[in-house]
Amino acid sequence: MRPAVRHNLKRKFAQTLDLPPSVVLDQAVIHILGDGEVQIVNHKGLVQYTAACVKARAVQGMIEVSGSELEIASFSAQQMKIRGRIRQVMLK
């Protein structure tokens, strides 16, 4: 079965049974708290980390958090919490 078809099927399954898509589709969840904190749950690994930019891989693509004085407050296989002066959160 092609990946696009499998993805569509999973989405419909989640919608029908009212299940959270983040669980069924393995998608990343991004919480933004003001301009000081971003939490990414279900990431697929850190790609780049500098004080101005943090890039993380996700099922949807690349999540890019940019700003200044960025610090990874906590980092584990499932989630990461980024603190600092957040200016932009992009999904590429």
Binding site: L46, T50, A51, L70, E71, A73, S74, F75, S76
Partner: peptide, 13 residues
């Protein structure tokens, strides 16, 4: 490290 179950805190570049 994260995959091996090592939690990291206050990571600073």
């Amino acid at each position: 490290a994260a995959q091996a179950g090592v939690a990291l805190f206050q990571v600073q570049r």
